[in-house]
């Protein structure tokens, strides 16, 4: 397994005392990696800073200037949820670079599974705005690099919150398929089933909203029944996962009721979407209960490596089975409407 960490600059300078997006999350992630007991099979690589050229593929240049200047002026609260410190610009550019580094390593080895253990997380970061604890969109920066290399990228986002930033950035990009499972309604408010992509990327966004209390069986059903055929048709050459673990039942940030065993099943699912070894990387997003974070990361990575470790059993029996049919219907209508508007506007 290839593990890429924030470094050589530690992520500990990105901290706001009492804020749940805290450096201890990284300690829990490292503990999970230790639990894997990989020995010499573990390749640890340090990230490098993503360059401006690599960042402007997904972010607005003015926003990057503003964010850098804001941090160097001492930082502060960007909004009610999101903070930055003096060190945050440096740390965030290393976090974005970590995704680039994992791609380098996996391509070179043509084997293994990547895990990007970096913070701050990224999937809420918009092209021109920080929000939801996120400053730079790490997974989008990595996907943009893969696009440059001519790849077709599947992004699976199983964080409990919708990855509005990633969706926005690739909204009209036909070579990125964005699939998100999330609690809905919930922050950030986007992610309804009728959001299916732009006119050049109709059906390249698959939102699978789930009601509070939903469990793993419903999530997996939505994934396989609705996203499954779209993924098969898309035929990705790479799979990147926005692996947030705040959908765990013990996480305080939301109300889905997954167990670490559900992440094992979700991992099996995404591994099967990859065309060959060395083409899957997991990016840490949310996950704020440290115990749940540790056990869920362990379940995910051990499964990805083919030796699933003992964990909580998968959950089932929660609400939301009826949502799957409704989601399918909303998507079909939205896809048809977009197709129709395209036909009527084309001379």
């Amino acid at each position: 397994m290839v593990l890429v960490i924030n470094g050589p600059y530690s992520d500990s300078g990105h901290e706001d005392i009492g804020h749940p997006e805290r450096p201890e999350r990284m300690v829990a992630a490292m503990a999970a990696v230790d639990d894997l007991g990989l020995g010499s099979e573990l390749v640890v690589a340090e990230s490098y800073t993503a360059s401006r050229a690599e960042l402007v593929r997904v972010h607005n240049g003015n926003y990057l200037d503003e964010l850098g200047a804001f941090c160097y002026a001492g930082g502060g609260n960007i909004d009610d949820d999101t903070y930055a410190t003096f060190d945050s610009w440096t740390i965030a550019t290393y976090a974005a670079g970590a995704g680039l580094k994992v791609i380098d390593e996996l391509r070179r080895r043509d084997d293994g599974v990547g895990f990007v253990a970096a913070r701050p997380p990224g999937h809420h970061a918009l092209a021109d705005r920080a929000m939801g604890f996120c400053l730079l969109n790490n997974i989008a920066v990595a996907a943009a690099e893969l696009l440059r290399l001519g790849e077709r990228v599947l992004i699976v986002d199983w964080d409990v919150h919708h990855g509005n930033g990633t969706q926005q950035i690739f909204w009209d990009e036909p070579d990125v398929l964005y699939v998100s499972t999330h609690q809905w309604p919930l922050f950030p408010g986007s992610g309804s089933a009728s959001e299916v992509g732009g006119r050049h990327a109709n059906d390249r966004t698959v939102n699978l909203p789930l009601p509070p209390g939903a469990k793993g069986d419903v999530m997996l059903r939505a994934m396989s029944e609705i996203a499954g055929p779209v993924i098969a048709e898309f035929n990705p050459t790479w799979v990147l996962v926005s692996a947030g673990f705040d959908a765990h039942r013990d996480d305080p940030m939301a109300d889905l009721c997954l167990t670490s065993g559900d992440f094992r099943l979700m991992t099996n699912y995404v591994m099967d979407c990859a065309p060959r070894p060395g083409r899957v990387a997991f990016f840490l997003e949310g996950g704020y209960n440290l115990e749940a974070l540790r056990s869920s990361i362990l379940a995910t990575l051990s499964t990805a490596l083919g030796h699933p470790q003992e964990d909580e059993p998968p959950s089932n029996g929660g609400p939301g089975a009826d949502h799957v049919a409704r989601t399918r219907q909303s998507r079909l209508v939205a896809i048809e409407m977009l197709r129709h508007s395209d036909e009527t506007e084309t001379p």
Partner: peptide, 13 residues
């Protein structure tokens, strides 16, 4: 805008 800095947009809703 709690984090507002003169001349910067960031931090100012």
């Amino acid at each position: 805008g709690e984090g507002k800095r003169d001349g910067l947009l960031l931090g100012s809703t």
